[in-house]
Write a protein that binds this DNA or RNA. Structure first.
Lengths: 226, 226
DNA sequence: ACAAATATAATAGTATTACTATCATATTAG
DNA sequence: CTAATATGATAGTAATACTATTATATTTGT
């Protein structure tokens, strides 16, 4: 994306970080480098100690920003969904025709990811890659209900609901708009994962994109010709 | 399910366990009680030490059956998919009409789970519950490609392919049968999770089942009236 | 410019985890 | 009835996931 908006900040729910990482250089380095280190090691092997070594800083300093690595993952995920929501609104807001709007929405959600110059400390391409592999670990926990009450998943849920509204606008009589929306948002990650690791159980590859599949899926469900 | 088949054994890929847990009482206790303990504590907090205490046995004895808890999870998952595949074949094999066959398949995959008396040491209802929360953790790892090469996910992939074949039979010209099948298998777990934890982003609840949603989804995609 | 507040770094310490190794004892099989 | 095998008990290790304390920078307000 072009550098259009000078001072833009993705707002994440309160409580995910002890101290706002965007308020300091160290904070930005923690967030920026955690993405590349989680990508390298996988979330299980990623530790604050290793991150400290990587950024030439101390483990204890990182603990002043995030309670633990789970909270950091929740933060990264909320940032990602906030960023995706912003793209969704940015690229669909001007479109009034419901079908065209939904097409664009599905393209934003399932299309290729590009570096966004508005947020230079975050590599969105890497972040997207770790979301595919790690996002579900952020909610498949024993604490999901209490953390949901704290509002840690609001951005994600809001995005699903935005998609649901676009679905509803196109076909108000379709009775499963919420489930379709949540299936698409989650299914996009899943198909992208399968493409890279279990290619024998997906049709998505270089030729046939996830976008094509999900457009077809959604419009079939809504009885709208593509 | 009724106790129909006396000596039935779900076959899981070789290498998941060091020693076949079905070959001894201790092994069966490890598998049976691990399901209830993972359900209680969540996979992250579950340890072999705690399992040992629970079954009145020693940590070191459990290590003689499974290399670590990840391998145990892979074992449980393969068992679950093997059992699901067996139900799928059992309940659809006699049906020759493609649409009726696919309806039954979707009902088996997304319908309520009942205790299966053929396998008394395993509580399938609990196992299904831990699969919803923990299954994706078994493949969202750094080691997924090497473990896939070892064949640890064959049962899962085979089930998806079976569903794909039923989809194909009903509409051979549908170009995304594999992706649709994998989306359904994964989406079923996801919708069931949302129902319990994020009810605001799913339509599935007591009144409206996941089965209804996925039947509608699949038949819409295949242009078949329900 | 300087004191006070704040941020970061360095070090140490703890309970738990995820094992491995060894040896003892119980059970089963030939 | 001996030998093999399965299980149990205990100990030990490196790493993890922190907490606490103290020291040293850096920033801020006056």
């Amino acid at each position: 994306m072009k550098y259009l908006l000078q001072s833009l900040k993705i707002v994440v729910p309160d409580g995910l970080s002890i101290k706002d990482p965007e308020s300091s250089d160290l904070g930005k380095k923690i967030v920026g480098e955690s993405i590349s280190l989680i990508h390298e090691l996988g979330f299980e092997s990623f530790t604050f100690k290793k991150l400290g070594e990587r950024i030439g800083s101390n483990e204890s300093s990182i603990y002043r920003y995030f309670e633990n690595k789970h909270m950091l993952l929740l933060y990264l995920a909320s940032w990602y969904w906030g960023w995706t929501e912003y793209k969704l609104v940015f690229f669909t807001n001007h479109i009034s025709e419901p079908k065209e709007k939904l097409v664009k929405a599905l393209e934003v959600l399932s299309g290729e990811i590009f570096q966004d110059k508005n947020f230079s400390h975050i590599n969105e391409v890497s972040l997207h890659n770790i979301m595919i592999k790690e996002y579900s670990k952020s909610y498949l926990t024993k604490e999901v209900d209490s953390e949901n009450k704290e509002g840690y998943f609001t951005v994600y849920k809001r995005l699903v609901i935005r998609l649901k509204e676009m679905i509803e606008e196109l076909n108000p009589s379709y009775p499963f708009s919420l489930s379709l929306a949540s299936t698409v948002v989650e299914g996009v990650f899943h198909q992208q994962f399968l493409k890279d690791h279990f290619p024998t159980i997906t049709d998505c590859d270089k030729k046939l994109s996830a976008t094509t599949f999900f457009k077809s899926l959604v419009f079939n469900c809504l009885n709208v010709t593509e």
